[in-house]
Design a protein around this nucleic acid. Structure first.
Lengths: 145, 145
DNA sequence: TATTGTTATACTCTATAACTATA
DNA sequence: TATAGTTATAGAGTATAACAATA
């Protein structure tokens, strides 16, 4: 028989962690063949939606420290997915855009991600899935305000 | 102005990750003065609810690999929070129990955790908080079945 | 043969300090 | 003075392979 979790299964943090790990494991199986992590996917998505944004802006939006972002964005540049060009208005800043190859890959990743979302929606039921969005956003907003 | 997340804020995985990080950051501020991580707290809680359970049983229940559990449980043993005694029925197995000192600390941690839960409940509203439990448990059950 | 606990090891993620070149 | 990007580095967390003792 499985061990008793005690008060643990009433704690939102425990439930969130286990759910997040399971959901990430599901999406990662779809991304693995492309050599892309969930974090990589989020970066590509934000660059696509904000072409020309600065490197530290993108990192900050996703809660990634600029110092840890350097090797991550470098890998994607070396793979030819992202272009880093000096900003014309601020010579300290590197403007990020997707390359055509990056656009093609991201479109494929979006299809994979949508299939994953469809699985999660079917698993929970569409109403329950939609009902999760607002409280999760409210919880995410605790720290930074 | 903040960068556009695009389709990212419709993805359950992204929302779960950001929410989990924010919630963990909140509980960790309460645990920090005790030198206890959320993972340590979950281990102490499961041992308290299942005294005498084997080391690998406890690890497996929490999704921790037995190999990574060794240094974690050793730290708690060295701190005098957990006792590891050879099982009388299976000489391969180490039975885990809390020491009196571990019981005292866990009671204090439970109070801290409850204050945290109360904050989260107040932030979301009690009904929204309770409504999260079931879908999160369903999501967590995706992988292992 | 399978399981419990262990060591060794490697890879990713995250965090801090310090630097440069610009603003 | 402050900010964008960088380097170096250290600490967690997590993963696999291999082993001894026991079932």
């Amino acid at each position: 028989m499985a061990l008793d979790l005690g008060p643990l299964d009433g704690h939102i943090g425990y439930l969130l962690r286990r759910a997040q790990l399971a959901v990430f494991a599901d999406i990662m199986t779809g991304f693995a063949s492309h050599g892309i992590s969930p974090a990589d996917y989020s970066v590509l998505t934000v660059i696509a939606g904000n072409p020309g944004a600065g490197q530290s802006q993108v990192a900050e939006r996703l809660g990634i420290q600029k110092t840890n972002f350097v090797p991550q964005i470098r890998r994607m540049e070396e793979r030819g997915l992202v272009a880093r060009t000096p900003s014309p208005t601020d010579r300290r800043s590197m403007s990020l855009t997707l390359t055509p190859e990056g656009e093609v890959l991201l479109a494929e990743l979006h299809r994979t991600a949508q299939a994953h979302v469809d699985r999660m929606r079917a698993h929970l039921g569409p109403e329950a899935y939609e009902a999760l969005r607002e409280p999760l956003m409210r919880l995410a907003a605790i720290g930074p305000g």
